[in-house]
């Protein structure tokens, strides 16, 4: 009886999540396509619903917020309800701007994670199997992991002017769909940061594979490289999935720090909306909503990947920052 109810609740919750998530992603994809095509349907940052809708919800929100004023608790309750209603109008008006900015956040995150992985694999290999390189990799990893990402970004942007200059002079940068130099510096910063973390995750998962596996691979006649490639890595990469999820989530959130180096990602956009409207809380909460959608989607996607490649007995261990 109670188990039956619990299952129904879970189904309902999942259904709602899919419906809302699906709607948001449909809308996001529409906004992206619309903006790439130069605003064929509506202007790239122009809302789909008329301004009057936003005005109406905002005044409705204000009215609701005024209900019960003077009565403690009731007043607070209606304040919250009124704020939430007003927030709908606010989101309808400023959502499109953040949607366009969200694309940049996605690009920043995905490129940085992937390139970070490419850098991380040799780093991890050096850390596990290297002689001298072991110490080089160790120092790099600990240095990066022990210092704030803001400091790394600032150092690259303000402390290394030659880097900005060099990137700016690469033909095509800042033109068309190729992002401006600040974005490239942000990507470089995220790659450096992420590679250090990913190297540690990979090292951890390689070391969590039972040494007997490599022995058995050698006993069948595989050489060390073959044993690592066909036996150790396929297992280690599966062990690493939960940490990758964490890494992706981490980068999505910390890509907001690119705001400090003028990259027009979600939070930069939200901040300028805030100072334009003075509705700071609304602007930041809306930004938080966008990050949350990206984070939840990333976790969900990675859990699908994990389930897809899951093998009984090759367990996943929780790890990550």
């Amino acid at each position: 009886m109670s188990a039956e109810r619990e299952r129904r609740h879970a189904d309902l919750e999942r259904g709602l999540t899919y419906a809302i998530g699906g709607a948001i992603w449909l809308w996001l994809c529409f906004r992206w396509l619309n903006s790439w095509l130069g605003g064929v349907v509506v202007g790239p940052t122009e809302p789909l619903v008329p301004q009057s809708f936003a005005t109406a919800t905002e005044s409705l929100g204000a009215t609701l917020g005024a209900v019960g004023d003077g009565v403690p608790l009731v007043a607070t309750g209606f304040d919250l309800v009124g704020w939430a209603v007003g927030m709908v109008g606010f989101a309808s008006q400023y959502g499109p701007q953040l949607a366009v900015a969200a694309w940049l956040t996605v690009v920043l995150t995905v490129i940085s994670t992937l390139v970070g992985l490419v850098v991380a694999v040799p780093l991890a290999a050096a850390r596990v199997y290297g002689r001298v390189t072991k110490y080089v990799a160790f120092v790099y990893i600990e240095l990066i992991r022990g210092t704030p990402l803001v400091a790394q970004l600032f150092l690259l942007y303000y402390g290394a002017p030659f880097l900005s200059k060099f990137i700016r002079e690469v033909p095509g940068v800042g033109q068309g769909i190729v992002p401006a130099q600040a974005v490239w510096i942000a990507i470089i910063g995220f790659v450096i940061n992420s590679s250090a973390y990913q190297a540690e995750y990979i090292r951890g998962s390689v070391e969590s594979v039972d040494p007997g596996q490599l022995t058995a691979a050698r006993a069948v006649g595989l050489d060390k490289l073959g044993g690592i490639r066909y036996v150790v890595l396929p297992q280690a990469l599966r062990y690493a999935i939960p940490s990758w999820t964490n890494e992706l989530v981490y980068l999505i959130k910390y890509s907001s720090l690119a705001m400090f180096i003028t990259v027009p990602e979600i939070f930069t956009q939200a901040d300028s909306i805030g100072s334009e409207t003075f509705a700071y809380t609304n602007a930041y909460v809306l930004a938080a909503g966008f990050y949350l959608v990206l984070v939840v989607t990333a976790s969900y996607g990675m859990s699908k990947v994990e389930a897809e490649v899951a093998i009984p007995g090759v367990g996943s261990s929780d790890a990550g920052r």
């Binding site: 989530v249 907001s256 938080a288 990050y291």
Partner: peptide, 8 residues
């Protein structure tokens, strides 16, 4: 956990 610390 899904919101950046900067936003919070």
């Amino acid at each position: 956990r899904g919101t950046p610390i900067l936003v919070i």
